[in-house]
Design a protein around this nucleic acid. Sequence first.
DNA 1: TGACCAAGCGCC
DNA 2: AAAGGGCGCTTGGTCA
Length: 518
Amino acid sequence: MVTDGTILPVGGPARRVDDLARAVRELEAERPRWVWADAREVYPLLLAKGVRVARCHDVTLTEGLLLAYEGRYGQPRSAKAAHARLHGLPVPDDRPSMPDTLFAPEPLGAEAVAEVLADQLRRIEALPEPGRFRLLVAAESAGALIAAEMGHDGMPWRRDVHDALLTELLGPRPVHGMRPAKLQALADEVSAAFGHPVNPDSVQQLIKAFKGAGVALKTTRSWELKQLDHPAIAPLLAYKELARLYSFHGWVWADQWVRDGRFRAEYVVAGVVSGRWATDGGGALQIPKVMRRVVVADDGWTLIVADAAQLEPRVLAAMAADGGLARAAGEIDLYSALAKSFGGERANAKIAMLSAMYGGTSGDASKLLAVMRQRFPKAYQFVEDAAKAGEEGRLVRSWLGRTSPPPSEGWKSLVSGPEGSRAIRDRGRFTRNFVVQATAAEWALVLMAVLRGRLSGPARLVFFQHDEIMVHCPLDQAEEVMAAVTESAAEASRLLFGGTPVRFPMEAVAVSCYADAK
DNA sequence: TGACCAAGCGCC
DNA sequence: AAAGGGCGCTTGGTCA
């Protein structure tokens, strides 16, 4: 627990404090922007003491953004490393692959952090679009606060409902090392269908067993299995689905991750190169939809759930300033609005957009992409340029300046070899997708930062999944929180794209159970 | 025994 | 319904 530290006011002398949490609480009344080396190390300790802050500048996250922009992706980004670089000293390695050096025993002094901050602000001002990058830094730093708060507050998770659901699907919780009854019954059915014991968790055993039954398989992916006709298929598919539920989000998982009626996830801000969040244990971003019925608001409280509709194509329309696409993106259902350009077929419009953003080539994609190129030339060109940059080994950037990692040495050597064209295509698909995914991620980050600032009283953000948010609040706050969500979406759009005609609809619903949100 | 990889599939 | 970019997480299986 942090009970002492140093506070360095702007322009003033450093002040040692015995009780850092208390000092922060008192100074927070003036709404300062706290600068700290790493929110992940500081903020959970403050939250544990009941202290929350409105704004911060996270030096580590900012250094990561700046290094990537400068083409130095992957260099140590901690405040300590940044300080060492400034002074030409040996740089401590703080990459995730070096866990034992992640938390330096000796923290950086406040004066040194201030020095790194000043350097960062200089580097930001020297960028071609400092205003955009400042917004990115503010949103990323707000994300650090939100991630820590969500980990602290937790999403409501009813263990009794969870247990009932698992028991219904799998049978009662088994003793250690045993399969639940229904899972074992399915495994027995699979073995019976082959006439000998087969472990359905073993790819090797399955492929061998199918080979013995005259069925040649390259993989045991469910979509491949579904095309086969064999008595083992049905129980095997059922087994795979339930086994995943059991091992990923079963009783053992709940023992580890659910306490006091809350699932406390460990989010990793900027854990994905595109700026999406990742998780460090708990799998908060991969909770199966069937588990949503376990997320239930407290008595007298409600869950406000909202997701941004068709966020990525809207982001593309706004970035590319494509008039036609922007007009379609002024509608609630973008794909329906596009349908008439694609022979009246909404599904075709969707394929065309997704193929453009992800680099798809299968099926009807190329024909539909030709239509896209003709009808929405600026949007088409925007993603083509991103793909070309990647294929040529160049960097690409999001709207606010988050920058893709440079190609690896391995890629560069691959390019001239026999696998070269494949490597080039893969890299093009990556950068094509990066500009859209990264900008969508920063839109969502800005939305959350704005929304967090608008929440009052006990309302709390408790869940975030790429383009979807959840707020837990007392019932009588439901209306104001729903309005705040919609207003925050509009504000995020304005902050990123100014007066774009593109709309970013974010309809919020109030439900007592997450499963009722759709 | 532990480290590491591949397969597979959940989410967006 | 999926295609396809990004992830996390578990199991089985191999190798030192």
